[in-house]
Design a protein around this nucleic acid. Structure first.
Lengths: 345, 345
DNA sequence: TTGAAAGCGCTAACAA
DNA sequence: TTGTTAGCGCTTTCAA
């Protein structure tokens, strides 16, 4: 349309025969414009195909209405389900999203990333990358430098930041207690990679449930995987060898459980009769595994939603110069889904 | 740190005893600054913890270095794998990403979305949402209004826009020809939802391969699913009923194939002996299905990468006022992965 | 109800 | 090599 020379507020003003100010008022739905003027200006905006520059507005308002999002491992289904929740809620609340995906899970380039967000004047930051090894170490150093509200997803509780987390520990307990309730006495565990906080939490939950039920935890009762189906196969093979009496198994995620089911089948182990299996995550396909997999569903969509809600609350509090922001630790309860792989005999 | 009053280029200039211009030069690594001055200015920037405002820069340069990304269905693995490719390449080329996810697959709110991107002065737009029904209808009307380079992913070829697409038709042909090469004579197909362009392409590929091999396509040889494992189950049940002689099956995606394998197993059908099965997508888990699933791998990561590369090329061409932009249709060749579900007897 | 002036933080163009 | 001037497009005073 027209020339490519951008239509600005000035062009609208000129054509409407009013000041830029008035146009600005119309733009922002201010009450102090006569209906007549407002109409005229609006029509001219339409006619000119005018699009106010969000950039200029951000600059002068010192508020961008953009949130920064840090993810990692988008190619896996978990992070993207969370992102899905984030996009939905952000849209609903009128915020745009500036997305950065970490190339690796480690924390080597956090500083420039935060700097970049700062440059772009994001109003808040959602840190949706998983906590692994020491990749939260930067918090102590860098956090004080950042004057932007941040919310973290699914990490260890700490007092200085707000966090929304799925209760992995509880989920693992629920899974294990379920196996116990089935009368299983030898319950093993295939963990995720133990440098992941989530994997450790799940392991702790498994241990706690067993301990509370009077069982002992021994080294031969678990093996470590890395979330992938392939690693699940390896870990399961290792486990059946060192824990032959195993009659129940809590697997750290559904992908690994998939190959547990297959390997068990190949070995002639009946599920659930010989071995009751439960996974973690609740991916849709798990219902169609062979046999259908019991699992602990984590609502990652909701996780993203809540994170945005809470972050926006922080952002708006900050606008009010309301500086007393108590960091919160919000927890989401996972949900047990019982299917055939852990059915009562 | 310090007061929250933002440190600006002005503060740096004052403290360094130079003009803002000089600071700006240092910022942009211009050659025309003495090494001495540059050093001093840089140190002061460090000391002040100065972060240049990307917003102000965008405003004055009239270039944001941000690309807009439109996705849909992020909770499914395909779109997020593509997004993963996009983030990686954008990072590499120095572009940020403003992300919008469509709440529905339909095209009802394209106009405001484009307006929003325009407001934010994105340098280019990647349309990564699938083509469904008539949700590309807006192109004719709205495209001329947009002065921003756009690239579309995986949609029907057209002359007026640049497109990067996985060759679904070819992939389906390859899959079907593979089944034919196994000596199968009765090859069925479970389609995706046929309002999706991709699903239609796969069906066309299946038809073409059969026709070329001298087979007739009949209505009872295929059934429609909706990508979900559940729908795969339903479609398969329907199909075995109306096409009892079926000895080969091309399934529109791996999730649906999962439940085909299971249902076949429950019905006592041997795979691949009684029925050779091949899926589409190449999701990692398919290797661990029971039996391991042959599939057509589509490299969605690469799709995202190429889209960004091509878009950036368009963006830079436009900067050069090089207006002769021939829209391209770039095609990515999928890759056949043969596993046990379609092994030679 | 409207307008004028100043400024948000930076860069481009020109001068020195 | 450095500085000056004039914007980029909008909003926030304050005044009319």
């Amino acid at each position: 349309m027209m020339d490519k020379n951008k239509i600005t507020i000035y062009d609208v003003a000129k054509q409407a025969g009013v000041s830029r100010q008035t146009v600005s008022r119309v733009l922002n739905n201010r009450p102090d414009v006569s209906e007549e003027t407002r109409k005229r200006v609006q029509e001219i905006m339409e006619g000119l195909n005018y699009h106010p520059s969000a950039i200029a507005r951000s600059l002068s308002r010192q508020k961008s209405n953009i949130l920064g999002v840090v993810t990692a491992g988008l190619k896996y289904i978990g992070p993207s389900r969370t992102l899905n929740g984030i996009t939905g809620k952000a849209e609903e609340l009128g915020y745009g999203l500036l997305l950065k995906e970490l190339a690796t899970f480690s924390a080597n380039n956090v500083h420039p990333l935060l700097g970049w967000f700062q440059s772009h004047q994001v109003d808040g930051i959602i840190w949706a990358a998983p906590e692994i090894e020491d990749n939260r170490n930067w918090l102590g150093d860098l956090l004080p430098e950042i004057d932007i509200p941040i919310i973290f997803l699914t990490m260890e509780k700490r007092e200085d930041v707000s966090i929304v987390a799925i209760d992995n520990y509880l989920g693992a307990r629920m899974a294990t207690e379920h196996l116990i309730s089935l009368g299983r006495k030898n319950i093993g565990h295939i963990t995720g990679p133990l440098d992941w906080w989530e994997a450790r939490q799940r392991k702790l939950g498994w241990e706690a449930a067993l301990t509370d039920a009077g069982f002992k935890i021994l080294e031969h009762m678990w093996a470590e995987g890395n979330w992938s189906s392939r690693s699940g196969q390896t870990a399961f093979t290792e486990l059946v060898e060192k824990f032959p009496g195993m009659d129940g198994l809590f697997v750290g995620n559904d992908q690994m459980a998939l190959s547990v089911l297959r390997t068990a089948f190949e070995q002639g182990r009946k599920i659930p009769d010989d071995l009751a299996v439960i996974g973690f995550d609740g991916i849709p396909e798990s219902e169609f595994y062979c046999p259908p997999l019991s699992t602990v569903n984590q609502n990652q969509d909701e996780l993203g939603c809540i994170a945005v809600e809470e972050l926006v609350r922080l952002v708006e509090k900050k606008l009010m110069a309301d500086d007393v922001v108590e960091p919160k630790y919000i927890t989401i309860r996972p949900e047990l889904i019982i299917r055939q792989s852990s059915q009562k005999p």
